[in-house]
């Protein structure tokens, strides 16, 4: 991912900054400009998530994509935040520790880098609560 593209949503990655539709009271992460439920009737405002939730499902990746800062095998999961939205993130635990329904909380970690000379991508991962 190029530098401007990463930078554009950097705050949202660092701080789980998403959106909230005040019309239907639905929370979104990643942020959306249009509420998929209300569309034009939706009123969108920024919302910062607390960063706690549960693990909905997960896998153990053996072949990491390039530029990703993780040593295989690593746990990748879909986290459902307590406010409702779901996101994909790495779960920092051993493969044996991962469990569907496990409570997790967000932490600040390095998620990847462009190259040894390039930009470092920081963002949010999750640890077992």
């Amino acid at each position: 991912m190029t530098v401007p593209r990463f930078w554009r949503k950097l705050k949202h990655r660092y701080n789980l900054l998403g959106t909230h539709c005040t019309t239907c009271e639905t929370y979104y992460y990643p942020p959306r400009k249009i509420c998929p439920k209300c569309r034009r009737r939706g009123e969108i405002e920024p919302h910062r998530f607390k960063g706690e939730g549960k693990l909905l499902t997960y896998t153990i990746i053996q072949n990491p994509p390039e530029k990703i800062t993780a040593h295989a095998p690593y746990v990748l999961g879909i986290v459902e935040l307590d406010e409702g939205p779901r996101l994909t993130s790495q779960i920092i635990c051993s493969p044996e520790e991962a469990e569907i329904g496990m409570r997790v909380r967000s932490v600040f970690r390095k998620i990847g880098e462009e190259s040894a000379e390039g930009m470092i991508y920081y963002g949010t991962k999750f640890v077992k609560l």
Binding site: T69, H71, F108, K110, Y122, K125
Partner: peptide
């Protein structure tokens, strides 16, 4: 950890 560095440690301490 593999994905921790001075920045991530500083952020966790600051938070």
């Amino acid at each position: 950890d593999i994905d921790e560095d001075t920045v991530t440690i500083a952020v966790e301490a600051a938070r």
